[in-house]
Design a protein around this nucleic acid. Structure first.
Lengths: 186, 186
DNA sequence: GTTAATTATGAATGACGTACATATTTACGA
DNA sequence: TCGTAAATATGTACGTCATTCATAATTAAC
């Protein structure tokens, strides 16, 4: 991969991406909106960074990002979780979760069991092999996390989480609003 | 889509995702590492939120996230940008950019011109139709950005950008280090 | 007890991103 | 200067993520 990001420090000492600023500068047009565009671009960059990290960490272990997300949720419970609940928790379509559980099942890390309470529903359940996988993944994952957040104060980490979720909540609100006014789908 | 995120407020007043915390809690094992895992999960959520937003904004316009990124960079310059430079600026593989430029070219929003200085290189250049597209996209995009960052103070936006880029820089450093020590590829 | 909503999944689609191989061209060093 | 190494874009192949639409099975509602 050819990836040579060079960031610089603002007069405030805050990091920014000169190339992104140059690209967005003309587009944002008003100086007032430029920081938001820069922040959105930075979010995209950061996401790819952790994805690359995660891909490296689970390299050769054959579990991808989405599947890992499901597996960790499964590892937190004794009884299984239904496909629909997993989808709602992760914020993706249930069809997507079906596929992720497929791959986990193919790898022997999870299994499907019928829901005794609802015969339409299927519970995904972690297997002993899945628990072993999670256990083996835990330590390197912790180390990777610490490396990723090196230089972050505890408050920085909490602030980062808060800002991310506020973004997500805004989008959520907006999508609900658009759905009600029926701007996109009547 | 079935997506009902419910976040709650910490005792500090900061947002967190109870489901993510429950899932990560057992995995992180040490209380010290839990916030980092929560932050990483929140980043993933936020990324999906803006992607969904972007998808809605450019709905029916036939330009996807990656292609939009390239197009905006092209719109910021008079002369073209080489595939390799675009790849380095966006932090993705050059092969990927080749595909993105393919779709932009197919839609008539960009074109390829030979680089007069280097006959191996190909410059991607925005077309008048591409400029018109960007122009039409500008206004709704600004509105969407403002909606996404509603409730953010100017400092919040800058802080968010800084934290994202610090994450990316850490990953960059880490990847370089791993490449040198040859842990993954000798 | 018939109709409507929910649940998971099959089928099809598309975007994203990677690795590997290759042809062309440039750069460099003996 | 000649020959080897590096860079550039792209063809081929692959895998993942995520979506929509349709469908069968089951539950809920009236």
């Amino acid at each position: 991969m050819n990836d040579v990001h060079i960031y610089e420090h603002d007069q405030d000492g805050l990091l920014y991406d000169p190339r992104a600023r140059a690209a967005m500068g003309r587009f944002a047009e008003g100086e007032a909106d430029l920081p938001a565009f820069e922040a959105a671009a930075a979010l995209r960059t950061a996401y790819h960074a952790v994805e690359r990290m995660r891909a490296h960490g689970s390299e050769g272990r054959g579990v991808s990002a989405g599947a890992l997300d499901v597996l960790i949720r499964l590892s937190a419970t004794e009884r299984g979780i239904s496909i629909g609940d997993l989808a709602r928790a992760a914020g993706v379509s249930s069809r997507n979760v079906t596929g992720l559980v497929d791959t986990l099942e193919r790898d022997g890390l999870a299994r499907r069991v019928p829901d005794p309470k609802d015969r339409r529903s299927v519970l995904a359940e972690i297997t002993p092999a899945g628990r072993a996988w999670v256990e083996a993944f835990r330590k390197p994952s912790q180390l990777a996390m610490r490396a990723m957040f090196r230089g972050f104060s505890p408050e920085d980490v909490l602030t980062f989480r808060d800002l991310c979720l506020r973004l997500a909540a805004n989008q959520q609100r907006l999508a609900d609003h658009l759905r009600q006014t029926g701007s996109s789908r009547p």
